[in-house]
């Protein structure tokens, strides 16, 4: 999937995260988190896994995490990417 426009998803509420995506020529994931020291590595894993599953190889993904669980991270990243790809037809099986 190709990120073609800027999009956001999520909130800055506790236990949630705000995901912003933008078109770029290379893939870049930037993470800020309240729990960076404890879970920074795991958050990055979840984000990169999700992007890989969706076939996103290019684009900037900026994350402000407020201590979200893995499932929330996955859902927010998916929704932000779908918005950024202006994607109408979705292969739910892959997600």
């Amino acid at each position: 999937m190709e990120i073609t426009k800027e999009a956001i998803c999520g909130t800055l509420e506790s236990n949630d995260l705000l995901v912003k995506v933008a078109p770029r020529n290379e893939l870049e994931v930037v993470i800020s988190s309240e729990v960076m020291r404890q879970f920074g590595v795991r958050i990055r894993e979840v984000v990169e896994e999700t992007l890989l599953q969706m076939g996103v190889t290019r684009g900037q993904v900026v994350i402000e995490d407020k201590g979200a669980l893995d499932c929330a991270i996955r859902a927010r990243v998916q929704a932000a990417v779908l918005r950024g790809c202006e994607c109408d037809e979705l292969n739910w099986g892959v997600l």
Partner: peptide, 19 residues
């Protein structure tokens, strides 16, 4: 303040296209 600034960023992005 967190709720307020969250709301501001959502509104700016969705209604005005300012990300």
């Amino acid at each position: 303040s967190l709720k307020l600034m969250n709301e501001v960023q959502q509104v700016a992005s969705i209604e005005r296209g300012h990300n």
